[in-house]
């Protein structure tokens, strides 16, 4: 089965280039005529994930794997990790600094929003060892051949 993999580096605190990986993936999927609604969900998840890395995670890698039946986003970083994953998944919970809040981030909606938009989501993390978020999106019938 054919699949297409692409990866992008995401740098900590690099707000200028934040979102570029998501935009590239978005453009790629558009050329493949994937369902626009699905593309939008992927873009939202990708962007939230990317911002998490930029704000909290230290440097990270943003991988996308496109298969005929599903698309997998795999965003991992070498940051401080999440102590309590269940808590982090709650709406409104955030560990963002005041600096980020002033920039308009840190509303505690990132992970919940990703969970809402992804078909499946797995968060693996341990304090001090970084975080890995994997999200899958199922492509329904109108799959390109």
């Amino acid at each position: 089965m054919s699949s297409l993999k692409k990866s992008f580096n995401v740098r900590c605190r690099d707000f200028i280039h934040a979102g570029e990986a998501s935009i590239s993936v978005q453009q790629l999927l558009k050329q493949m005529h994937i369902d626009p609604v699905l593309i939008r969900r992927i873009a939202i998840c990708g962007y939230e994930g990317e911002m998490n890395v930029v704000m909290h995670g230290g440097d990270g890698i943003y991988c996308v794997e496109i298969n005929t039946d599903r698309i997998v986003l795999d965003i991992s970083d070498k940051g401080p990790g999440i102590a309590d994953i269940a808590k982090a998944m709650e709406k409104g919970f955030s560990t963002a600094s005041d600096e980020y809040r002033e920039m308009g981030f840190g509303a505690g909606m990132g992970l919940p929003n990703m969970k809402k938009n992804a078909d499946e989501m797995i968060v693996e993390s341990e304090p001090g060892c970084g975080t890995r978020v994997r999200m899958s999106f199922i492509i329904k019938q109108s799959t390109p051949t």
């Binding site: 297409l4 493949m32 496109i66 005929t68």
Partner: peptide, 12 residues
């Protein structure tokens, strides 16, 4: 035409 996975690979 929409690009297929193979097309994408060829482009890369």
């Amino acid at each position: 035409k929409p690009l297929t996975f193979d097309d994408m690979k060829k482009i890369e």
